[in-house]
Design a protein around this nucleic acid. Sequence first.
DNA 1: GCTGTTATCGCAACCGTTTGCACTAAATTT
DNA 2: AAATTTAGTGCAAACGGTTGCGATAACAGC
Lengths: 339, 339
Amino acid sequence: MPVTIKDVAALAGVSPSTVSRTCKNNPSISKETKEKVRRAMTELGYEPNFQASNLANNNSRTIGIILPVSAKEAYENSFYLEVIRGISQFCNQRQYANTIITGQDENEILQVIRTMTRSGQVDGFIVLYSRHQDPIIDYLDEEGLLYVLIGKAYQLANQTIYIDNDNILAGQAATEYLYRLGHRKIAYLGCGDDLIFSSDRKAGYQLAASRLRLDAPVEYNVNMPSVFGDDYSSVRELLTSENRPSAMVVCDDILAVALERICNEIGLSIPDDLSIISFNNSLFAKLTSPQLTTIDINTAQLGIEAASQIINHIENPNLLATKIIVPHFIVERNSCRQI
Amino acid sequence: MPVTIKDVAALAGVSPSTVSRTCKNNPSISKETKEKVRRAMTELGYEPNFQASNLANNNSRTIGIILPVSAKEAYENSFYLEVIRGISQFCNQRQYANTIITGQDENEILQVIRTMTRSGQVDGFIVLYSRHQDPIIDYLDEEGLLYVLIGKAYQLANQTIYIDNDNILAGQAATEYLYRLGHRKIAYLGCGDDLIFSSDRKAGYQLAASRLRLDAPVEYNVNMPSVFGDDYSSVRELLTSENRPSAMVVCDDILAVALERICNEIGLSIPDDLSIISFNNSLFAKLTSPQLTTIDINTAQLGIEAASQIINHIENPNLLATKIIVPHFIVERNSCRQI
DNA sequence: GCTGTTATCGCAACCGTTTGCACTAAATTT
DNA sequence: AAATTTAGTGCAAACGGTTGCGATAACAGC
């Protein structure tokens, strides 16, 4: 039923091999026959069979997109959706397929990765998260599989391709922004040091704090690993202490919303009693009241660059493992005030 | 490098055809040789080549996931991420691949769909949204392509497979819930009638309103098609009018958050001045303060069922176009009060 | 006019699986 | 014991493209 290379060849009065060669613009085919063949192709609406060409070329033209295990927090973060959109857009343009990989736990994901690679189903992977210790990355490294990381690489940083923002710089920028508004007591709220973006933004915060000679005692470094579970105690303590900060750098919009809730509960108003700057510029930042001042990290661009890199490496096997840094920018809204 | 069917055959001392047949448990192979072959397969870690088997079987074992055009609102709704997770999970289990399809506008998406089907890249599609008029659906229908819809089918409802909640019932349930709390002035906030889930939930609301003999004037039906653009006027008017409602049914958590903002701005407090019940039970519902009472629609299950249906129809070509209704349930939180 | 190039294209093998059919040996029937 | 069935397995063609190599023709150089 579908039109094959033979149909085109027959209509153009040439052999299938000639059709194949004109498809890849092989110079050993004359201009005139190429034209003939191209006319036949468009007339029939020919599109080369994906499976067949992959089989012959020994590739799959598909990249696997690895999501964090669904049990983990932060899963429902539309950050991932945005990145996927970027990846997908680029893949669609370049005639690549992509396939989402998820699982309840690491073993499920590993299992899927294993059978996919053994069956030649994917040419490479994009890993949508990066943490300090991760069995998935370990496996990919061991097996010598091609992958790019969204977020900074931790181990083997020099041999792995990754796409990231300069989160340290962004953390600094956020802190300096608050400083310029007059804040001197600035705290950092992260979501646990396991996730690299959080620890990087914290590092940036600390760097800026020491440069600006801010007083940043250890209590000013708080974590809220779970957005749900009611373990807000450390944050609560900080916000009700004598020495409470006048502003906070928060590693994610979602966390900032959670922080707003706590403030609400203990009667602090934003930005009057506490200024907040966060990261990602997600819908959350636009919808809460007050709207959040946040650092936009060009999420979709992360996906586009990741796809571009992996495809580039698939098609040119021994490129070097470059790193791509996507810029960020501040979006000023109403959650920070001058003091 | 990768292990092929010939390697297994050689190790087991049989022919490739025998290996292929034991893979699909063909009864004409004796128990003993099957055992022999299976041992060889596990010893070598054999996994049949995806492309080759697809070529021979004339299928692709991959399903396309069609996202709404990215320009449209509501895009950044983690609803889609959850559904994708469900789809992906099911696909991974059944050894199917999936591929995300996006685009800036409908033509881009159509283009991708066209080349994908012509090149035999996908066996079917899952469409993640449903609206009253959609060129994508038109195209799929015209070409006789296999697809399932997440959300209710509008045209050709009896010939299309769709997975949905009973949004009319859910709309009723939400309204009745408020009624039981003592509310009599209940309004509905939707995001435009083009999206079917919104118009269905409204229909449910109206049904309940008339059954319960509520006074629901036309002004009680308001829409907020854009969450951003500051076109909040109709909502504002409603909330500041003489006859303002004491409770609202809101078609989506995100919209509910936007509503909370407006209330904040005009000095209405929730739930004291206005009770809110919304839909989806997304992160938004859990993070705002007060937390939203919301109707959970089992989002991930929608994805799982969609994947199950499409695969079922791919493997059994002339099944009937069944509909699947996924149940919902109320999650009570703090955004509604008894009056 | 003969040989050596060069440009252009087709033949046929191959990628790894699947499957109709033929074939062998054992089991059953006459 | 010969004939027929049956169970179990292998051969080879096919799926739709790709590509090394050889074939042909045109053309240049001597």
